[in-house]
């Protein structure tokens, strides 16, 4: 089953005077993984960050056009960016656990949003999130250890657990494996595959192989524009655009 979760219509993004994204329109569906690929500086991460208004935190950034989450414009004045980010979670390029215990890292979001009123509730939320992120078995005996003491791959799964714990509807991943070794990467990719059952997932990646492995749809960005968007198989085997073909065959990027 697929239904549209996020819709972008004619989105432009500016950093000061500079236009970083040019007229992008895209539909992102529930229940699948959507990958954004493209050479460095093509705007794929910038566009990703417009989807949960993380660009708001950058001085001078401005977004034109509209982005709808379940039909509701997330840039409307009535939309609270804080509430939005609870619905659209994000995992970053470099694992960024807070300097707190593993338990507290996961409990952070639920606490902020007033979930899990009792201690037992909170423990249950944390266990569920860590289990979903495939980390529970590894850390269940040392939940009080510092999150920063884990290995890089474990840290990234902790960050995923942290994002899952607030029960978002969409998870945005900005090159989540670029700081990890191949084994940790494989582990995260498996996890992404499992998570797509429960969340709409958008992943930005540098690696075309990764996009081919984990995603069902792929969007190719170049110079701030969306060049081609379609089923991943079609993009990689039979691209319609010359630029897409040149990029996936390694002509540039």
């Amino acid at each position: 089953m697929t239904d549209t979760k996020l819709t972008a219509r004619n989105v432009d993004v500016f950093y000061g005077q500079k236009k970083a994204i040019n007229d992008v329109s895209i539909d992102i569906d529930n229940g699948i993984v959507t990958a954004f690929i493209g050479p460095s500086g093509c705007g794929k991460s910038t566009f990703l960050r417009t989807l949960n208004r993380m660009n708001d935190t950058i001085a001078g950034a401005r977004v034109d056009g509209e982005i709808l989450l379940d039909g509701e414009n997330i840039y409307a004045a009535s939309m609270d960016p804080v509430a939005l980010r609870a619905r659209v979670g994000m995992v970053f390029q470099k694992p960024n656990p807070f300097p707190k215990s593993i338990f507290e890292n996961v409990a952070y979001g639920p606490r902020i949003h007033g979930l899990g009123s009792s201690k037992a509730d909170m423990e249950q939320i944390v266990e569920r999130a860590l289990t979903k992120a495939g980390l529970w078995e590894e850390v269940k005996d040392r939940l009080t250890d510092a999150g920063t003491a884990l290995s890089g791959g474990q840290q990234q799964r902790l960050c995923i657990a942290r994002a899952i714990a607030v029960s978002p509807e969409v998870i945005l991943m900005d090159e989540p494996c670029s700081a990890l070794d191949p084994i940790a990467t494989a582990r995260i990719e498996e996890l992404i595959d499992e998570l797509k059952e429960s969340f709409a997932i958008v992943i930005v990646t540098h690696s075309m192989q990764q996009a081919a492995r984990v995603s069902q749809r792929t969007a190719f960005f170049h110079l701030g524009s969306l060049v081609e968007y379609g089923e991943t198989d079609q993009i990689f085997t039979n691209p319609r655009e010359v630029r897409t073909k040149d990029y996936i065959t390694g002509r540039y990027g």
């Binding site: 980010r85 994000m90 952070y108 979001g109 942290r162 607030v166």
Partner: peptide
């Protein structure tokens, strides 16, 4: 701080 903001704090 990005990590925290992205969780909706």
């Amino acid at each position: 701080s990005d990590g925290s903001l992205a969780l909706g704090s």
